[in-house]
Write a protein that binds this DNA or RNA. Structure first.
Lengths: 353, 353
DNA sequence: CTCCTGGACGGTAACGTTTCCAAGTTTTAC
DNA sequence: GTAAAACTTGGAAACGTTACCGTCCAGGAG
């Protein structure tokens, strides 16, 4: 019995023409009703609406977007690993704002390489999206100039194009974290850096400024540049630095994943260490407060990052906003949880569990 | 200086007609070249390709999708909170597969209520997506029957429609978790349940079956149904149950967020408890291994869930797959980390480490 | 009664692509 | 050398919508 799945009944969806016929009106009238219904007699509009309901008509957004000059009611979002809560939060927030205005959000597939990013963006542009939100990779983004759609960069700026950008105060955050550690009396603070994104550079800058302001010199051997931005790399680096003859007394991890790696390394080293270093991370993360030593972090309102970007883009797309490119910077705050405290190195002043 | 942002140069993007003119060929020829170039003389094709490059032509996917019967090259993904790593993983994985076939993924904005879900889905359908991947909310999904696009449900089935479904072996997972606890000698195991999704019901079923197989009766007062599926609700419930005169010696949390709540509650209670209960969670989560007591969980390959769904949907959309609705079930495994072990307090029936 | 104004409506041309069909051209077969 | 077949190519129709331009009618002004 070569059972076959009943191929799609293929009932073509009703169109405005069907509605017009059913309601006994012209095509233009249906269009007017569908778009707010100005200039249509109430009685006529009623009839049209009735026909729409009976037929289950739904406007074909594709045909609508085909009209000259019109863009679709979709925004594109291009970002890295959705598995990173940072990106996921941005996605969720922008989705929410876009949805409120009846816009959908298209996610391009995002590989890691700049070339893949470019391809993904062009694919998205060919879909006539009304605007692009991009968390840019490194590499030149000048090719976006001629795309004909508004662009908002999120979290970090891109080179080669002057567009709106929404980001957090990375330098301020880096400074905040460092000042906190310095205030605890630490003078040998290591900073673990992910591959040089713009954001990381600014955080490092804050780190240096805080040192300068405190009159303490940065030990360059404690400025650790990782080859990759994942937890494993941070774990390895932490391992290495803590086993040096003169290890740091505090560590600033410049990224949520890096913080995880640092903590993992410290957990493994455990009693091998003379004293547990203080730790501050950049960006909050789930369960940070439930670890053996709750982690102090510098945090910002990531969701607001996504919301602002979406709002700005929607305004640009509708033409409501024609200001020069904006630069929105969100503040960072410190969430103290204990890991930033000076360790009671020898004596176990540690809280009982 | 009333500075105004240079309004879009509004250079209309070149069309196939422009390409045709430039290459001195007909429109149909350009179309053929763009779509693989069968039936075009090599020399002609060269000329067309040259014109495409010079003009920077890019096919307008919107116009393309307008043709009769044609759907766009986008898949829709409808799911809950992207901030939940479970959903984020599905999104990432499906995005990856779709991207490999040149498909984009549209995320509908998803409120929590079933009504919002329906609205979002219809919005997506009106965008002529080639297929829908849905992590369904409760409520009838019969309205999808006439949508005219293939549908794949992810993680749980929906009522009112017979469609493909990709899910994990919830019952098996529930059983596995429970058997593990029973094997440790626990006889009073609490199970914390999120609001009754299908998945939760199956996990409970596995819980009961494991008990029956072991000849142990389930204490119904330890089957705890939460009003909400978040960590806070689980925290509160755990608090309550652990302070009863006869608390459970083990807890099975039916969801990653619930596991977090359970652990939080146990952490707070701390020394108030006679002995720390064993804990097993459903679904792995980041940092589970770094908590004061590393958490044992039942886990499955969530990414594979997303990948399978996307693959299946693409096949359906292309017409390559006309089998009856499929039901793909992925296995669950146990990841032992310690929290599932019997607490050493009373009798040391515990396995030597 | 005529003229004019304005609102309500119908019809049609686009938008950019794909898919036909017919016409033109070459190649193949006899 | 001719007929048929195969391959190329150009052109036009269609997809569903919106924007525009008329037409029609009612009602008010003159």
């Amino acid at each position: 019995m070569p059972e076959t799945f009943p191929t799609k009944p293929e009932v073509p969806r009703p169109t405005m023409i069907d509605v017009a016929r059913r309601a006994g009106v012209g095509l233009g009238t249906v269009s007017r009703v569908v778009n707010g219904g100005h200039g249509v007699r109430d009685e006529t509009a009623q009839r049209v609406r009735a026909a729409i309901d009976e037929l289950g008509f739904q406007r074909n957004e594709v045909a609508r977007a085909l009209r000259p000059g019109k863009k679709s009611t979709s925004l594109a979002l291009v970002l890295g690993d959705l598995t990173n809560p940072f990106y996921a939060t941005i996605a969720k927030a922008s989705l929410e704002i876009a949805g409120q205005s009846g816009f959908a959000v298209v996610l391009g597939s995002v590989d890691e390489d700049p070339e893949g990013e470019k391809r993904a963006i062009q694919e998205l542009v060919s879909r006539q999206v009304a605007g692009l939100m991009i968390v840019p990779d490194q590499g030149d983004h000048a090719f976006l100039e001629g795309a004909g759609v508004p662009v908002v960069f999120v979290d970090r700026p891109a080179t080669g194009i002057d567009a709106d950008i929404v980001m957090v105060d990375n330098e301020g955050g880096g400074r905040l974290a460092t000042e906190h550690l310095l205030a605890q009396g630490h003078e040998r603070i290591a900073i673990i850096l992910a591959p040089s994104y713009y954001t990381i550079g600014r955080r490092l800058r804050g780190f240096r400024r805080a040192h300068r302001a405190a009159g303490i010199e940065v030990d360059e051997s404690l400025v650790i540049q990782l080859p990759e931005g994942n937890a494993e790399a941070a774990e390895k680096a932490t391992h290495e630095v803590m086993l040096r003859p003169d290890p740091p007394t505090a560590i600033f991890a410049s990224t949520n994943f890096l913080t995880e790696g640092v903590l993992r390394a410290l957990g493994e080293l455990g009693s091998e260490l003379r004293s547990e270093p203080a730790v501050v991370g950049f960006d909050d993360f789930r369960l940070a407060d439930m670890l053996p030593t709750p982690v102090t972090v510098v945090a910002s309102d990531i969701a607001e990052l996504g919301r602002s970007a979406a709002r700005l883009l929607l305004d640009r797309a509708s033409g409501a906003d024609t200001r020069p490119p904006q630069r929105i910077v969100l503040p960072c705050g410190l969430i103290e949880r204990g890991s930033g405290e000076r360790a009671p190195d020898s004596a176990a002043k540690r809280k009982p569990r």
